Amino acid sequence: MSRPPGRATPLLVVAALLVLLGAGNAHAAGYRYWSFWEGDGGKGWTYATQGPSSVRPDDGAVQGFRFSVSEDSRDAAQPRRAPDFGTVCADTPQKDGLKRIALVIDPGTAADAPDGEEAPAPRTACARVAPDASTAEALASVAKPLRYDSSAMLCAISGYPRSGCGEQVAGQPEAAKSDGTAPAPAADGARGASGDGGPSAGVLTGVGAVLVLGVAGVLRARRRR
């Protein structure tokens, strides 16, 4: 028995839509690492564009570190304490020839911790270092031992975690981030391509293309009847 012309086309369209929408909801893998942040004049945190070994902050600066699982800088969790220099360095007086750097160290939550390890409590410290000292040097003065990998990536602060460095872990839905917050916005204020949990623009474009092709196929089939 011959199949009526055009009937297979809608079925193919539906199948293609299911594949595309499924791809849009797939969860990308994340990475477990220490992210580096800079205080924005008491207004909040800004993701650092350089590593802590390259940044040489001025006296009175606030630098933050957060251990978490994130996909990229747009998705990274911020330190959960405010970048308040006055509070962090209140008990550390100025000293001639040295600068003071406030440090916020947030090891993250239980969901961020590697298997078999428990995240320490967040803490702050006021480092008093030489005027030309980097953030890495300030951190080393108050939070040893530090651990780096062969590419100078910061792997551990105060010995946490005991092992691993930026390893890939299974992805999680956006709504299930370890700190319960929405993904951090990108530098231009926009969220990631699928930061709202819906299909990405690429997926929607693909859906539109499939629909157009499907309708065209149906029309051609009807003309042949």
Rank of each mutant, 00 (worst) to 15 (best):
P93D: 02
G116K: 08
A143W: 04
P107F: 08
S134I: 09
G166T: 06
D106P: 07
G159S: 03
M153G: 06
P120G: 10
P161T: 05
S151I: 09
Y160R: 07
D96W: 06
C155R: 07
E167S: 10
D84T: 15
V129R: 03
T124H: 03
I101P: 03
A125M: 10
T135D: 04
A119E: 07
M153Q: 15
C155T: 06
A130W: 12
P114Q: 13
M153R: 15
P107M: 09
A152E: 09
G166H: 05
P93A: 06
G166C: 05
C155W: 02
S163H: 11
E167V: 07
D96Q: 11
R162V: 13
P93V: 02
A113Q: 12
G166E: 04
L103C: 02
T92W: 02
A110N: 09
P93H: 04
E167M: 12
G86T: 13
S134P: 07
P122L: 11
R128D: 00
T109W: 09
L154R: 01
P161G: 04
A133C: 08
P131I: 13
A121D: 14
L146M: 00
D106C: 00
G164E: 13
P107Y: 11
G116C: 08
P131A: 06
M153E: 10
A125S: 14
L146E: 00
A136H: 03
T109S: 15
M153Y: 13
T87S: 13
P145V: 06
A140I: 01
P122S: 14
A143P: 01
R147F: 03
C165G: 06
P93K: 02
V129E: 02
E167A: 12
G86M: 10
A133D: 02
P161F: 10
C155Q: 06
I157E: 00
K99V: 10
P122E: 12
A125F: 15
A111F: 00
R128G: 03
L139H: 01
E167W: 11
D96H: 07
P145M: 04
E137I: 01
F85C: 09
R123V: 09
A121C: 03
C155E: 07
D106A: 04
K144E: 13
P107T: 02
A119C: 08
F85I: 12
P122H: 13
P83L: 05
K144Q: 13
A138M: 05
D91Q: 14
A119H: 09
G86F: 13
A138V: 00
L103S: 06
D96E: 11
T92E: 12
L98A: 13
R162D: 14
S163L: 03
D149R: 01
Y160S: 02
G108K: 15
C89P: 08
R100Y: 03
L154H: 00
S158G: 08
P114E: 14
V142P: 00
G164V: 08
G86I: 12
D112W: 12
G116W: 14
A110Q: 14
A125Q: 12
A125C: 12
G166Q: 05
R123K: 15
S150M: 07
L103D: 02
G164L: 06
G116R: 11
L103F: 09
S158H: 03
G108R: 15
P145L: 02
A110M: 11
K144V: 04
S150Y: 09
L146R: 00
L98G: 03
I105T: 07
E137C: 01
L154Q: 07
S163I: 05
A152R: 15
L98E: 10
C165P: 05
A133M: 11
